[in-house]
């Protein structure tokens, strides 16, 4: 399968990328690792007329200790996250889940920023960033702004980024390396999650987020509330499908996804409590 024809522009700086985005408008897409975008283009589910390749902006590959948080460059690849000692010590949950994305080949190419900006609710890492209340830095020709993770994921493959904005940095709190569990359910080893559930402890409170239970990654707020009120993991997990609207597709019905959410949240909570 070959993508539909497109013009290829290589950006050698962030400014060049955002200028090109402003010039070509909504028909243009940024290409980072391509692990999410290229499969969609091959299936002709995405048909951008211009691809702006930002994959060579190696300045945006980093995990830095920025005092009260960690700053991660948008083009940092999953393999880099997986092997980062800074991340392992300061934000172990993100390192651990990065190691569960796709497979080795995908992690060699795929980037954190690409995964976030793509806005696929089946992606693993956006759910982690949502649970951590991460902040995203967006650049356009008009300047820079930050967007909170709870405002960032708007719909299926849709984010709060404007057509002329590029995600440049992801900021995550330093939560150390204890207290997290990620349960990912799929049928083939390297597949996208049919449903995923993350439990992570931040400042003594357990946060729970869900993968592929709606058009965006979701916080399981009813579960979090039950836990805060003292419910046992198994009781709190019963609320996992509340306020979710999962899709039905070839891999699972919506009803089955809701069942999976309850089971996977329970398992994640029990692992965190153990």
């Amino acid at each position: 399968m070959i993508p539909a024809a497109f013009d290829y522009v290589r950006a050698d700086s962030i400014d060049a990328a955002t200028t090109a985005l402003a010039e070509y408008g909504e028909d243009a897409k940024l290409l980072a690792g391509g692990m999410s975008l290229l499969p969609l283009m091959k299936l002709r589910l995405a048909v951008p007329s211009v691809l702006i390749d930002v994959g060579r902006l190696t300045d945006l590959t980093y995990v830095k200790d920025a005092g009260d948080h960690l700053a991660i460059g948008a083009l940092t690849r999953h393999r880099y996250l997986e092997t980062s000692t800074v991340l392992a010590e300061q934000c172990g949950v993100l390192r651990a889940v990065a190691a569960e994305v796709g497979d080795n080949q995908v992690r060699h190419r795929g980037t954190l920023g690409g995964s976030v900006a793509h806005g696929d609710p089946a992606s693993d890492l956006p759910a982690v960033l949502l649970a951590l209340d991460a902040t995203f830095v967006a650049r356009s020709p008009n300047g820079e702004r930050t967007i909170k993770s709870r405002d960032f994921f708007v719909g299926f493959l849709e984010t709060a980024l404007n057509p002329d904005e590029m995600l440049t940095e992801i900021r995550v709190p330093k939560v150390g390396h204890t207290g997290y569990a990620y349960e990912k359910f799929n049928r083939r080893a390297q597949d996208w999650a049919i449903v995923g559930a993350l439990a992570t402890v931040v400042d003594g409170a357990t946060r729970v987020s869900l993968v592929n239970m709606g058009t965006t990654p979701l916080r399981a707020t009813a579960v979090e509330k039950a836990l805060a009120e003292g419910a046992a993991p198994s009781a709190a997990a019963e609320f996992a499908a509340e306020s979710t609207d999962p899709s039905s597709d070839v891999t699972a019905t919506a009803e089955y996804r809701k069942h999976l959410a309850r089971v996977l949240v329970r398992r994640a909570l029990e692992r965190v409590a153990a």
Partner: peptide
Amino acid sequence: SVKSCTMLAAQ
């Protein structure tokens, strides 16, 4: 290792 069906030659 990379899956060469999911990378552009230009990349």
